[in-house]
Design a protein around this nucleic acid. Structure first.
Length: 269
DNA sequence: CCATATGTTAAAAG
DNA sequence: ACTTTTAACATATG
């Protein structure tokens, strides 16, 4: 489920529940998720230290470590979640208040744990990721990430968004332009802004770009507050026979930016 | 078996 | 050379 809002929730969970706890052991044996580092390298870097801060830009998280240790980077990929447990093994859930993982969820099956930190107090932090597209590493390179979608300034947004002639949705999804927007948040934002996902960025005027940024900020804040991008107004209508929740027109499906795209062909122009 | 999936990125195409 | 699109990645699910 991870787009910017879900990642922010995961970051907040780490910040509130995983900091300043001594790390006793680390399982970094999944060489796909932890590539290209060899097994044991992340463990060697973390054991004996503590996480001291949890940061995020777009969908990338990183944690500073004590004693001038290296930075731990975490990316949830397409299906990753962060679970932190207290010393009694009880999960400290942030995240989706409606559909959050529960202690008895089948999603708890450890076969899908791709990376685990065991704290000296008995609790753990783990990356749970069925699809295995998440990534864990050390000292991440953030230079190829644009400014966070929730913090980018209007003037910067306009310049970055309007360069070139890609479809506006493809540009929203480009993490080097704006970091954090995924497929669902892009559809929600464009629907709120009443912009056709196909619109080439060079056809957007300043008014369009300001409307788009307002929609992006609102959709992002709302998704964080309500527990995820799937709580967006139009998301439930992204399906065959779905209808625009504003005007009732049948939703249209297309591929834009390489991703399945749903939009209202009447209102989004 | 086929299609689809909330992400990233190397390779190909333009 | 730079920008944009496609394909592939690993895995689960309908």
């Amino acid at each position: 489920m991870p787009e910017l809002p879900e990642v922010e929730t995961a970051r907040a969970v780490i910040a509130e529940a995983a900091l300043d706890r001594e790390i006793a052991a680390v399982d970094d044996s999944d060489t796909w998720v932890c590539r290209p580092l060899p097994p044991g390298q992340i463990a060697a870097a973390l054991v004996g230290r503590r996480l001291v801060a949890a940061n995020r830009r777009g969908k990338t998280m990183w944690c500073d470590t004590s004693d001038d240790g290296p930075v731990l980077s975490l990316h949830l990929g397409m299906s990753g979640r962060i679970v932190v447990t207290d010393p009694d093994g009880h999960p400290v859930e942030g995240g989706d208040p409606v559909r959050g993982l529960s202690a008895v969820s089948p999603d708890r099956d450890p076969v899908w744990d791709r990376f685990t930190i065991e704290f000296a107090d008995g609790g753990v932090l783990r990356l749970f990721d069925k699809r295995r597209l998440g990534r864990v590493g050390l000292d991440p390179d953030l230079t190829r990430l644009g400014p966070d979608a929730g913090q980018v300034r209007a003037s910067d947004f306009r310049v970055r968004m309007s360069r070139g002639r890609a479809p506006v949705k493809a540009r929203l999804l480009d993490q080097s332009v704006i970091a954090g927007v995924g497929n669902l948040l892009a559809d929600e934002t464009l629907w709120q802004a009443r912009l056709d996902p196909h619109r080439r960025v060079d056809t957007l005027d300043r008014r369009d770009l300001d409307v788009l940024l307002r929609a992006l900020r609102a959709a992002t804040k709302r998704a964080i507050r309500r527990g995820g991008v799937h709580t967006g107004e139009v998301i439930a209508h992204r399906k065959p026979d779905g209808h625009c929740p504003r005007c009732g027109s049948p939703m249209a499906r297309a591929t834009v930016g390489g991703r399945t795209t749903w939009f209202c062909p009447v209102e989004q122009v």
